[in-house]
């Protein structure tokens, strides 16, 4: 009988979320910020699936369905975000988010 329960998974999710948030707020590299967003989305997914497993019970899959939707949206977000980063790099020749503060060239 395992003693690992819902709170342990939620704690892992909390740590993932906090570290992703730190990545977002401390990085100057736009790609690094996108990595932090991926971590935050993963934290949400861990919570979804943990609640699905421990709270929703057998036969119900809402948490897993939403985790798949989150994965899909994260893939779309990564593609669009990195395309925007590349476009910013083509325009400003840098991806330092503190220097790219103009909406025009």
């Amino acid at each position: 009988m395992s003693s690992i329960g819902l709170p342990h998974f939620l704690a892992v999710g909390a740590a993932l979320f906090a570290l992703g948030m730190v990545t977002v707020v401390t990085r100057r590299n736009a790609v690094g910020i996108l990595m932090g967003v991926e971590l935050i989305l993963n934290a949400a997914n861990v919570n979804f699936i943990a609640f699905n497993h421990f709270v929703e019970g057998p036969g119900r899959l809402t948490g897993q369905v939403f985790s798949i939707f989150v994965i899909v949206l994260a893939a779309a977000e990564a593609a669009i975000g990195l395309a925007i980063v590349l476009a910013i790099y083509q325009t400003f020749r840098t991806i330092d988010v503190e220097e790219t503060d103009l909406l025009r060239e």
Partner: peptide
């Protein structure tokens, strides 16, 4: 994708520039 974006953009984030102001 992330690795491609890193390779395609110039490296910033040498140690004094790691964190934002």
């Amino acid at each position: 994708l992330i690795l491609f974006a890193i390779m395609l953009t110039k490296q910033i984030g040498e140690d004094p520039k790691l964190t934002n102001a």
